[in-house]
Structures are given as structure tokens and as C-alpha cells.
Computed example of a mutant assay.
Amino acid sequence: MAICLGCLAGAVTSGFGQTKPNPTSIEEKTKIHRLATTNRAIYDAFVYLNRIPEKAEEDETPEDFAGRIFGRLANQEGRILIKLPEGMDRQAYLGYKIFLESEGTAKMGNCIACHAPPDFTDLKEHVSSQNGSKKPTPSLRNLAKRKVNVRKVLMAKMAASERKRAGKAEKIDEAYGKMRLNKGDLAELVAFLNLLNDVPEKDFRNLILNAKILDTSEDIE
């Protein structure tokens, strides 16, 4: 009797000689409850662990989206329940908050204005240098794969921000004028951006299983 190999390719045999379909949902494949995203960076494990909003709601501004995330973080910090997946530390967590911040006078990256999650790009064009032309906003995911020197890029953005705030760069996008960073903030931002590099599928589950609680018993900025 002929056997249809195409039919068997999508099935596995149980211990009782019966066939069961291969897992098809993300949750079945990864054995992670409630997992819906197909992104596989340390950042995505962090979002999953802490139930952080993954994307802006319809018509929600980046600033309001950041405010909603901060509300969730404050709730978790107050109960000392911030969970850091394997590969993420306090420095990267602080960098995440700088990335989100768009109000205040210090440690304000305002990065979310053009690089909101989950894709970390607004898919729009912006001017980022005085003599430059409008360019599409690149995604901040997988910068390592593209061999981007993250620190060098951040230094250039800081310089553009300073020129914008000094009134010497009218063409540069307004979002740069809201940035308030110094060189001391770069290490934290770089640490966070490194979390956006994908890990192998087989390693993603362990990021979650090996998570640790961040001590927020003292004031954390």
C-alpha cells in the first residue's frame, strides 16, 4: 500500500501508535504560556516576564505609550517584582528607562519618539543632521548583525541634539531638541540597545526560565 509522505511530514507518532500534528502555535512550539510574539531578543523576554505593553494603541502617541509603560514599571518596582531575563542587568534596565523618557531635564533619551516598540522604528523619514536630507528611520533591532557601532551613533545623536537646542540646526528633527543626555548615560543606553539583538530560538525559553528579580527596594531612577 502506498504511503503519502506529505501527510506524515506534518505529524508525529504517539506512544500508542497514533499520530499527532506537529505543534503549530507559538505557545506550543516554545512551551511558553501566553507567548504571542515571534521576536526573539532578550528585550522580548523582559516584556513577556513583566507583562509590559508591547505596542501603542491606535492613535496613542509615543509619549503616551511611554507613560503607560512607566506606569507598569512603577507598579512592579514598588512591589519589587521587576524580573530580568538572563542576559539583562540593572544597567540595561536603567537604559530602557532613559530610552523611554521624554519629559524632564536629565537622562531623557526621547528615543521612543521615532523608535517605538515593537519594531523600534516609526517607518517615517527624519532629518538627523544639519546638512543632511530626510532618511527613513532604521529599526534598532539586530544592530549587531548589521555591524552598527552603537556608541558612535549615540554620540552623533547627542551632538545633533546639542546643536538643535543651541539653535544652530533648524533642519534637524524636533525630537532631537528634547534629548537630554551626557556621556555618562551612554553605557546604560548601549546596554539596553544590545538587548534588541535576537538570540537563537532554542535559547529564548531559558532567558525566561532563568530570570531574576531586580532589587528595587531603594530608589531607582
Rank of each mutant, 00 (worst) to 15 (best):
residue 198 D to S: 05
residue 9 A to L: 03
residue 215 D to E: 03
residue 196 L to N: 05
residue 209 L to I: 06
residue 95 G to V: 08
residue 171 K to Q: 10
residue 39 N to L: 11
residue 23 P to Y: 00
residue 40 R to W: 12
residue 19 T to A: 11
residue 207 L to A: 04
residue 16 F to P: 02
residue 28 E to V: 04
residue 80 I to G: 03
residue 116 A to M: 09
residue 129 S to F: 14
residue 106 A to E: 15
residue 197 N to T: 10
residue 199 V to C: 11
residue 50 N to F: 00
residue 88 M to T: 12
residue 58 E to S: 10
residue 29 K to L: 09
residue 100 L to M: 05
residue 135 K to M: 12
residue 183 K to I: 14
residue 135 K to I: 11
residue 32 I to E: 04
residue 129 S to N: 14
residue 104 G to Y: 03
residue 63 E to F: 13
residue 90 R to K: 15
residue 188 E to F: 05
residue 182 N to C: 11
residue 9 A to N: 06
residue 216 T to Q: 10
residue 37 T to L: 00
residue 112 I to M: 05
residue 21 P to R: 08
residue 171 K to G: 08
residue 23 P to A: 06
residue 66 A to P: 13
residue 84 L to Y: 03
residue 163 R to S: 06
residue 61 T to K: 10
residue 84 L to R: 00
residue 148 V to D: 02
residue 212 K to P: 13
residue 209 L to T: 04
residue 67 G to S: 13
residue 55 K to C: 07
residue 31 K to C: 15
residue 175 A to K: 09
residue 190 V to K: 01
residue 94 L to T: 09
residue 182 N to W: 00
residue 34 R to Q: 08
residue 193 L to K: 09
residue 70 F to R: 12
residue 142 N to Y: 14
residue 63 E to K: 15
residue 122 D to Q: 09
residue 205 R to I: 07
residue 89 D to W: 11
residue 216 T to G: 07
residue 193 L to D: 02
residue 130 Q to M: 07
residue 147 K to G: 02
residue 11 A to M: 15
residue 175 A to N: 12
